[in-house]
Amino acid sequence: MGDIMKTIIHDLDESYDLLFKKKYENVIFANGKYAPCQGCFGCWTKHPAQCYLKDALQTVCRQIGKAEELIIITENCYGAYSPAVKNVLDRSIGVSTPFSTYRGKQMHHTLRYGRKEKLTIYTYGHITKEEEKTFRYMLERNAINYGFREFEFHYLENLKQLEEME
């Protein structure tokens, strides 16, 4: 199976889901109905890159890991991802291996799928200055953890902007 150019994670609704699916091959709809990560590390130690919870997110780390570019569209929640989007990310730690190394002078896990191009966040909903600062900082940390070379942060005043997204 060849690598994926772009993977999109979003927490919008069915109509946006259809819109994205027309444009992109890999769209993950964080609808808030999935079970949360149980912290068992099975996706590292028992059945690599696969969650023991048998739902649509069981191999979501592969969809994320193989993408050169990851785009996340999320409602702001205290300067972080919405619970629905965070659920997808928590279930995707199989993108890395259980092995640890130094990256950026700190301890991080080695990457199962290697370095990637770009992580882009589009956030919407009410956001304060402090929350934007938190979000940008967390994004920088996420980019290191996931192995993205670049990252971008965008705030969406209006969801209509998404219709013009490349």
């Binding site: 590390f41 130690t45 028992k46 059945h47 690599p48 199989g94 092995f99 301890m107």
Partner: peptide, 28 residues
């Protein structure tokens, strides 16, 4: 030393749980 200990820890757990024999570090 912590990284070394963590790596050894995960090797041991992964031997017991079998992940090490199922493409432990491989692309899936």
């Amino acid at each position: 030393l912590f990284i070394l200990a963590a790596d050894i820890f995960f090797v041991i757990i992964s031997i017991f749980q079998g992940g090490i024999f199922r493409g432990w570090l491989k692309r899936k």
